[in-house]
């Protein structure tokens, strides 16, 4: 029972730490790691609640949920990294070589475009 609480409590702690890091740090890589730590915290909680006492086998449903969650987390991380590498490529080229539509090129007013993000930084 104590082990279960320790495990679940550690999960909540990881979630809080990850959330703090996500909000405080600007670099994308740190944000992504923070999100993954938050995810790991939630998975900890799921694993802790799968425990049904020493006599019974653990509940398989939370385990299945964690497996699905891991797959989702990996895909999301991959997409974020791909978008970030696209941003960094754009930094090396003088002009991103893409026009948004087959129509005439659209110029956006600088005042209205999103804030000039430094290297891969996002600011929620």
């Amino acid at each position: 029972m104590i082990a279960q609480f320790l495990y679940g409590g550690a999960g909540i702690l990881l979630f809080a730490l990850g959330l703090w890091s996500l909000l405080v740090h600007a670099p994308l890589l740190r944000k992504l790691i923070a999100l993954n730590i938050m995810g790991a915290g939630v998975f900890h909680v799921f694993i802790a609640i799968a425990h049904r006492g020493d006599a019974l086998p653990p509940d398989p449903v939370p385990h299945a949920l964690v497996l699905t969650g891991i797959v989702v987390a990996v895909s999301a991380t991959a997409l974020a990294l791909a978008l970030n590498s696209r941003l960094e490529q754009g930094e090396n080229e003088p002009e991103p070589a893409s026009s948004p539509s087959p129509g005439p090129r659209i110029h956006m007013q600088p005042a209205l475009s999103t804030e000039p993000s430094s290297k891969g930084a996002t600011h929620p």
């Binding site: 996500l22 994308l28 944000k31 992504l32 999100l35 999301a76 997409l79 974020a80 978008l83 970030n84 696209r86 941003l87 754009g90 991103p96 893409s98 948004p100 539509s101 956006m108 475009s113 999103t114 993000s117 891969g120 996002t122 600011h123 929620p124």
Partner: peptide, 15 residues
């Protein structure tokens, strides 16, 4: 669109 603004806005959206 692959434009800088779009990618950085949507990276933020993703996070």
């Amino acid at each position: 669109t692959g434009s800088r603004d779009a990618v950085s806005a949507n990276l933020r959206y993703l996070l």
